[in-house]
Design a protein around this nucleic acid. Structure first.
Length: 1063
RNA sequence: GGGCCAAUAGCUCAAUCAGGUUGAGCGCCACUCUGAUAAGGUGGAGGCUCUCGGUUCAAAUCCGAGUUGGCCCA
């Protein structure tokens, strides 16, 4: 790019972004930026791998944009940042998508299709999704190492998982065992608790009588899963709860029923009993050991009947709800299972992984459990065991992928027994800093404390195979081989394997056997839970253990950055795996953001139809504006509400920046301004106050931004920068320096202004570059040409220049601006527009600093407020034309007056006094004071202005610093100028109608339908002629003619351009 | 059903930790400027600070209960 080249008049994000993409491509901007920091201090960022099913949505976009802004910021600070993106590509979600695509119903279809083919399909699907995500991420300017992402399906990554798992095994944290797990009967695999989705469904609700063996009557239990009754092993009670035996009558017959006292009424009405009496009252503890008959003893001959089975036990999961007695089947429910193991019971689970009863299910063998509900209910009714049968609406777990209702069954699974290292996990949490901190100390800690052992095995295909080999004739975990690397695999297996090329997927490794000491080992057929894949990302990113060149230096990660759903996901899985394998937490800092919600604060969802695609946002406002919007949200923990308005505002701010940037270009170009020769230091002597001021503001903006960025509050950093650009540079500095730039002659003042705005723009684009990488690139290129870095992203993060910092000056100017604002306010109150001069403006300053500011800039202030005269009233004096009222300070009033403080405040606010003294005030409000005295701190006096004068207070950061009064009384002289200005503005507008050149001369005719006003205007004819470039004033024939109304007076104006020769 | 987080102007948020007459930006309306012009300036309207209790002289803020939304868990 050539320096100070022509740029578009309009900020056009789409054309600009397209051009910048091309430029990046041509110049290898990304590669050079990375290279530029190669020698810098290492910073190990680890990308949480998005799952490769579906496109990038607004949440992913927010996430990646946040990552991008911090990576760019860190690079600018000199760090050599690891920026390898990752993709999570295994797992059940992809399997089910592929199954859908291929029209598969169950595992049999997969087996027929062939494991190898199925795995190929899954891989192709994941790769395709990955390409889509990559191009989405690139489209909004994220700079990561797109050419070399880590993929969880690559052999070196899968090896990283094997290695981590083998380390955990070495530490004795891997075991095989029975667990009650959530099983998807369609997918025929265990699924993790966090993969279970709860939905409201209608299920049976049955109250069943279990007849007691050694006494009259029955226990009453309640359940929504009749299909678990075949596996009933015991009934649980709360030892401290009171139970009652009741003799109840129905249809002339009597039943003795045992239920919790609180449930008696409810159970009896459910059973439609007509009357009852309490015959026994006892605690749960006293019922322990009672034995009962299995209600489906005949139908399920193999039911549990071992020593101790079919008896009453205590359990902590019992509540005084429904019946207060809980049907317990350790072969199904998780709590039942745990209690069953405590009691040392053998586990009876007559249901297979596909949800079909096995032969142990007796009469029901071969039926799908949910289908068997009806028959079981009928059988219970036939046996007279059914007290009540109905339905209930409740939330029930479903498979997150295929929406099939899950079942709880007990199966053999492989676990990482992280409960054995719970203390270590909790300690390791302390080694990480979280933003926000509550996410760690509340949410995460709670979760870790509760976390059960990690079931890592899945009975599926598309995943990392468990690297476990067991003797072919045994299925326990006593003798096992855990392979850690491909190298080790090649060494130990019986077959020929090339460690360089071997693919570790199931179809490859299933065939491999190991023979050692005469025993042949075969691989456990399971694959890993997909959460295990990403849990090793902190070393998988480095291709460790295959490549150990960086691990020691980089690990653990300096930063990870994800949304709050990852508390239970990746934040947790990494902690678990890091601790199990290496005894350490694998990350040092966590930035946790929220989710992107729609404009109404609801979750974006396809079914609701409220999804905003990032593409749509980019189309409407451009990538930079979208990024600014996303980055303007607080990233720490809170959800973000999407807002088109806010995004449009961001585009406007960028437009403002664009205008500021292009404003000085033509002048710099004309004057041949060369920033490399004329820097700020060389014009130091010529800097004017406003230059020094904007440079001072720049320094404090940099300081604030750096501080906020380091606290992961990029939203605040951005806010500070945008305020500087919009308020200080655009609305104040540029306004103030325009005239200097218009000067045709070379002048030191003009050069100083060039050097100043050049420095400001140069640093502003650097500061904004991480946020809006496109527009800043364009501006940077135009400002620097070929003289500096090829890309703004190679710039250093601008440091504060102490020589240019000047807090006093910042405050001075802020005061002046506040006074001007107050003056404009007062003018408006007085009903006098700025075009009409006012006789005088009175500034009553509260402190010396304000006085100094006004004294130094009296002319400027008079000019901006269009005042003939500025009067300054110093803090020691007061403007004698004023009356006063008082304003109460509640922090003083409250403690002094207690309950009456509010009343006193009102009285003070309403009081009007001549002198601003406490005595006068006390007199005025004596009614409410009740004899107590006012103290000076309690009130501040407020002025009441005389007729014709309007006043407005001015202040900084909420502190009042004085008052501006505008005396808007009219004089003939003022009216004369006012009317003349009204005419001038209208003539200018007519010139514009004719599209006249600024310098073109005209003839002017004016007819004013009011003699007094006509005379007033005539007094200023010279002013009018000069301003509108009228060489002739008189009658205009065939000119541009228009009628106006000026302050109620009809005015007719006509203009005609004069030929060049007459000028 | 449980845990965590949130609720303040039409919208996005700040003020909450350390209680003291609620603020900013955007939007809207009016006025204004007219050599940044699909701009700029000034003002105005707009808040039972989600509800109900409690503590306190005083609560958006602290405490308790609830409602709604979000995430996580069952």
């Amino acid at each position: 790019m050539s320096r100070f080249g022509e740029v578009d008049d309009q900020y056009d994000p789409h054309a600009l972004e397209e051009a910048v993409f091309e430029y990046w491509d041509e110049t290898d901007a990304y590669e050079r930026t990375v290279e530029h920091r190669a020698e810098g201090e290492s910073y190990f960022f680890v990308d949480g791998p998005p799952y490769t099913s579906g496109a990038a949505h607004m949440g992913t976009t927010w996430n990646k944009t946040l990552k991008d802004v911090y990576i760019r910021f860190l690079r600018m600070q000199g760090y050599d940042v690891t920026d390898r993106p990752g993709y999570d590509m295994h797992g059940l979600p992809i399997e089910t998508k592929v199954e859908e695509k291929l029209g598969f119903e169950n595992k049999k279809d997969i087996e027929e299709f062939g494991e190898e083919n199925f795995i190929e399909e899954c891989k192709a699907f994941a790769e395709e999704q990955l390409e889509g995500l990559q191009s989405d991420f690139k489209s909004f300017g994220v700079w990561m190492d797109w050419d070399d992402p880590y993929k969880t399906v690559n052999p070196e990554y899968m090896e990283a998982a094997w290695w981590g798992f083998s380390k955990a095994a070495e530490r004795g944290l891997v075991e095989k065992g029975q667990r009650s797990i959530s099983q998807c009967p369609r997918c025929e695999t265990a699924i993790a608790n966090n993969e279970v989705e709860y939905e409201d469904v209608k299920d049976p609700s049955i109250y069943v009588k279990f007849d007691l063996e050694d006494r009259e009557g029955s226990l009453v239990i309640w359940t929504t899963t009749p299909w678990t009754i075949p596996a009933n092993t015991f009934v649980a009670v709360d030892p401290d709860l009171t139970y009652q035996g009741v003799r109840a009558k129905k249809d002339g017959e009597e039943d003795v029923l045992y239920v919790a006292e609180e449930c008696v009424e409810d159970v009896l009405s459910k059973g439609r009993y007509e009357d009852y009496e309490v015959v026994e009252e006892l605690s749960g503890e006293e019922m322990v050991g009672w034995s009962y008959e299995h209600p489906l003893a005949e139908e399920v001959p193999d039911h549990a009947d071992h020593e101790g089975a079919l008896e009453v036990y205590t359990a902590d999961y019992v509540e005084a709800d429904r019946t207060g007695l809980v049907h317990s089947a350790p072969g199904h429910g998780e709590e039942d299972f745990v209690r069953g193991r405590e009691l040392d019971f053998p586990i009876f689970c007559p249901v297979a992984g596909d949800g079909v009863y096995t032969d142990e299910g007796g009469k029901y063998a071969g039926q799908f459990v949910k289908d068997a509900d009806e028959e079981i209910i009928a059988d219970l009714e036939d046996a007279g065991a059914m007290l009540h049968s109905g339905t209930v609406e409740h939330s029930y777990g479903h498979c997150w992928r295929c929406d099939t209702g899950i079942i709880q069954i007990v199966t053999d699974q492989w676990f990482i027994t992280i409960t054995d290292v719970k203390d270590e996990l909790l300690e390791n949490i302390e080694d990480s800093e979280w933003y926000p901190q509550w996410a760690r100390d509340n949410r995460f800690r709670d979760f870790v404390e509760e976390a059960p052992d990690w079931n890592v095995s899945r009975q599926r295909y598309w995943g990392i195979p468990l690297p476990i080999w067991t003797p072919e004739d045994r299925d326990d975990d006593q003798d096992r081989i855990v392979v850690s690397t491909r190298e080790e695999l090649a060494e130990r297996v019986d077959q020929e394997v090339d460690p360089e090329t071997v693919d570790l997927h199931k179809d490859t490794v299933d065939e491999l056997t190991i023979t050692e000491d005469g025993t042949t080992y075969t691989r456990v057929p399971d694959v890993f839970d997909v959460w295990l894949d990403s849990s090793v990302a902190s070393w998988g990113t480095l291709d460790f253990p295959e490549d150990d060149s960086e691990f020691d230096e980089l690990w653990p990660a300096d930063l990870i950055l994800e949304a709050h759903d990852q508390t239970r996901g990746w934040f947790w899985s990494q902690l678990g795996m890091g601790t199990a394998a290496l005894g350490e937490i694998p990350y040092e800092q966590v930035l946790m953001h929220g989710h992107a919600l729609d404009e109404d604060g609801r979750k974006m969802s396809k079914s609701v139809g409220n999804v905003v695609e990032p593409d749509t946002a980019i189309e409407r406002h451009g990538s930079d504006a979208m990024r600014l919007f996303l980055l303007s949200a607080n990233p720490q923990g809170d959800d973000m509400r999407f807002s088109w308005d806010e995004m449009a505002t961001m585009e406007n701010h960028l437009r403002t920046l664009w205008n500021v940037f292009r404003f000085p270009l033509p002048y710099m170009r004309l004057d041949g301004f060369d920033p490399s020769e004329t820097d700020l230091e060389s014009v130091e002597e010529d800097l004017e106050l406003v230059d020094e001021w904007v440079l001072a503001r720049l320094q404090s903006t940099k300081a604030e931004m750096t501080e906020e960025m380091e606290q992961f509050r990029q939203d605040r950093a951005l806010e500070a920068l945008l305020e500087f650009i919009v308020e200080d540079v655009s609305r104040f500095y540029v306004q103030a320096v325009r005239e200097r730039m218009w000067e045709e002659e070379d002048s030191p003042s003009k050069t100083a202004a060039y050097a100043t705005i050049y420095r400001v723009l140069r640093e502003v684009v650097a500061l904004l570059a991480p946020f809006a990488p496109f527009v800043t690139e364009e501006i940077y290129g135009t400002l620097t040409g070929d003289d500096e870095h090829p890309t703004v992203h190679m710039e250093d993060w601008p440091a504060v220049d102490e020589d240019l910092a000047d807090e006093q000056l910042e405050e001075d100017v802020a005061l002046l601006r506040a006074i001007e604002e107050g003056g404009a306010n007062a003018r408006q109150q007085a009903g006098r527009k700025l075009r009409w001069p006012v006789q005088r403006v009175i500034v009553a300053a509260d402190d010396e600093r304000a006085v100094e500011a006004v004294e130094r800039h009296e002319t400027l202030l008079a000019d901006r407020l269009n005042a003939r005269e500025i009067e300054l009233v110093s803090p020691d004096d007061r403007w004698e034309e004023l009356a006063y009222s008082a304003e109460a300070d509640m922090s003083e009033l409250g403690p002094a007056f207690g309950g009456r403080a509010g009343e006193v405040m009102t009285a003070l606010n309403e009081a009007r006094i001549e002198e601003p003294t406490l005595e006068a005030l006390e007199d005025a409000v004596s009614d409410v004071l009740g004899g107590e005295e006012l103290e000076e701190e309690m009130v501040s006096f407020v002025t009441e202005t005389p007729e014709g004068v309007a006043g407005a207070s001015f202040g900084l950061n909420g502190d009042d610093r004085g008052v501006v009064y505008v005396d808007a009384a009219l004089t003939e002289d003022i009216e004369s100028e006012g009317y003349a200005r009204e005419v001038i503005r209208r003539v200018q507008e007519m010139r514009k109608d004719l599209d006249l050149d600024v310098e073109e001369r005209i003839a002017l005719e004016l007819e004013i339908d009011d003699d007094r006003v006509a005379d007033l205007v005539a007094d200023r004819e010279d002013l009018i002629r000069e301003e509108v470039r009228a060489d002739e004033v008189g009658t205009v024939e065939d000119g541009h003619r228009k009628e106006w109304e000026v302050e109620g007076v009809d005015v007719e104006l006509a203009i005609a351009p004069l030929a060049e020769s007459t000028a």
